[in-house]
């Protein structure tokens, strides 16, 4: 019999694992799929963490995570990329070995930070750093959006694990804002694709000092 605490650990591990895996994926659909899976784990984590604390409202929050981060945002990104005929092959800025080295460094940094502060969960620091490094290492529009969303998942995980019990109205507001952000980014990425005929942000060099 698997206890609630086990599920909790399982979802935390999945949240981190799928975010780690998406960094190594060279194809856009795979990246989006792994992001959705990691968000699914976040939704699960929201349920187990709130049940462990003895609250019921985590269920609604998990539903919100599922609707927006597992279904809607990945669908919008996949649709926008398809409509803009974006290249499904994503460019690596660093070589794979270097990428994994950077990821390992990010995880180590997160481990050190979480070790110093017992109150700050490892997984959320790790996700924020992973999202940031994804945005720096990958030079294409959709990876940058996903990097931002991974960061956001890290912050949400902090809210779920360490804080917990954030009022539903605020949660909904944050979901809607994040979703609006993803929508605006998707629209803008289409403009970039149309103007530059590429999703490679290396080409965005008009504005340098």
């Amino acid at each position: 019999m698997i206890s609630l605490a086990h599920w909790n650990q399982l979802f935390t591990a999945g949240l981190l694992l799928f975010s780690l895996m998406l960094i190594g994926k060279p194809r856009l659909p795979a990246i989006i799929r792994h992001f959705a899976l990691s968000s699914l784990c976040l939704a699960g984590l929201t349920v187990t963490a709130s049940l462990l604390r003895g609250e019921a409202q985590g269920l609604y929050s998990a539903l919100g995570t599922f609707a927006f981060k597992v279904v809607f945002i990945p669908a919008v990104l996949a649709y926008a990329a398809k409509r803009a005929h974006a290249s499904m092959q994503v460019k690596f800025y660093l070589r794979p070995a270097m990428t994994y080295f950077a990821v390992a460094a990010a995880l180590l940094a997160a481990y050190l930070v979480a070790g110093r502060f017992a109150t700050v969960p490892f997984v959320s620091i790790a996700l924020v750093l992973l999202g940031l490094s994804l945005m720096i290492m990958r030079k294409d529009l959709y990876s940058q959006i996903i990097g931002f969303m991974v960061m956001e998942n890290g912050v949400a995980a902090y809210g779920v694990i360490a804080v917990g019990g954030i009022p539903l109205l605020v949660e909904i507001g944050i979901f809607l804002t994040v979703t609006a952000g993803a929508l605006v980014m998707a629209v803008l990425s289409r403009h970039v694709q149309e103007l530059y005929a590429t999703g490679d942000t290396e080409r965005l060099t008009e504005l340098t000092e």
Partner: peptide, 28 residues
């Protein structure tokens, strides 16, 4: 909808969104 303005908008939304996400972490 010119090259430079779309590029500026992309930089703007990405950098400010990263910032505001870190800000949310701080608020939490």
């Amino acid at each position: 909808r010119k090259d430079a303005s779309v590029e500026a908008a992309w930089k703007y939304i990405i950098l400010c969104s990263i910032g505001i996400t870190l800000g949310l972490l701080g608020m939490l």
